Simulated assay, not measured.
Amino acid sequence: MASVNKINNKVRECRFFANEMTQQGLAERVGVTRQTIMAIEKGKYSPSLEVAFKIALVFQKSLEDVFSYDVAIE
């Protein structure tokens, strides 16, 4: 059996509720590129713990409110 681990996020939703903050605006506040934010939102890249905390802080949310980790056994 193989396990499938996935980090889910609500970054796009948080940006929407933060006056529709742009990916570029979030990237500048966090210190990463717009492409990194785009990849995180699409689930193609898992952020470092530091970047995840910075994203949560920008939106004044807990880490768990923005990111979740699912483990599934196939």
Rank of each mutant, 00 (worst) to 15 (best):
M1W: 07
A2H: 06
A2F: 02
S3H: 09
S3Y: 10
S3R: 11
N5G: 07
I7A: 05
I7H: 02
I7E: 01
N8S: 09
N8D: 07
N8M: 09
N9V: 09
K10S: 13
K10G: 09
V11W: 00
V11Y: 04
V11P: 08
V11Q: 03
V11M: 04
R12G: 15
E13G: 12
E13M: 10
C14H: 06
C14R: 05
C14S: 11
R15K: 14
R15C: 13
R15T: 13
R15A: 04
R15V: 08
F16D: 15
F17H: 14
A18Y: 11
A18S: 09
N19M: 05
N19C: 06
N19L: 02
E20Y: 08
E20I: 01
T22F: 07
T22K: 10
T22Y: 05
T22W: 04
Q23A: 09
Q23P: 09
Q23D: 05
Q23T: 09
Q24L: 15
Q24P: 03
G25R: 03
G25I: 02
L26F: 04
L26Y: 11
A27W: 06
E28Y: 02
E28G: 01
R29G: 01
R29K: 12
V30A: 04
V30G: 02
V30Q: 01
V32N: 08
V32S: 07
T33W: 11
R34C: 13
R34H: 15
R34D: 11
R34Y: 14
Q35T: 12
Q35K: 12
T36L: 08
M38W: 15
M38C: 15
M38P: 12
M38D: 15
A39C: 11
A39G: 11
A39E: 14
I40C: 05
I40S: 06
E41A: 13
E41K: 12
E41G: 14
K42Y: 07
K42I: 02
K44Q: 15
K44W: 03
Y45N: 12
Y45P: 07
P47W: 01
P47V: 01
L49A: 10
L49T: 05
L49M: 05
L49R: 03
E50W: 00
E50M: 04
V51Q: 05
A52R: 00
A52N: 01
F53S: 01
F53Q: 01
F53W: 00
K54M: 00
I55K: 00
I55G: 04
A56N: 03
A56M: 08
L57D: 05
V58G: 03
V58C: 06
F59S: 06
F59Y: 07
Q60N: 05
Q60L: 00
K61W: 02
S62T: 08
S62D: 10
E64W: 02
E64L: 01
E64G: 07
E64C: 02
E64S: 13
E64V: 07
D65H: 03
F67K: 00
F67P: 04
F67W: 00
F67S: 01
S68Y: 09
D70Q: 15
V71G: 13
V71W: 05
A72R: 11
A72D: 07
A72P: 00
A72L: 08
A72H: 10
I73D: 07
I73V: 15
E74K: 06
E74Q: 05
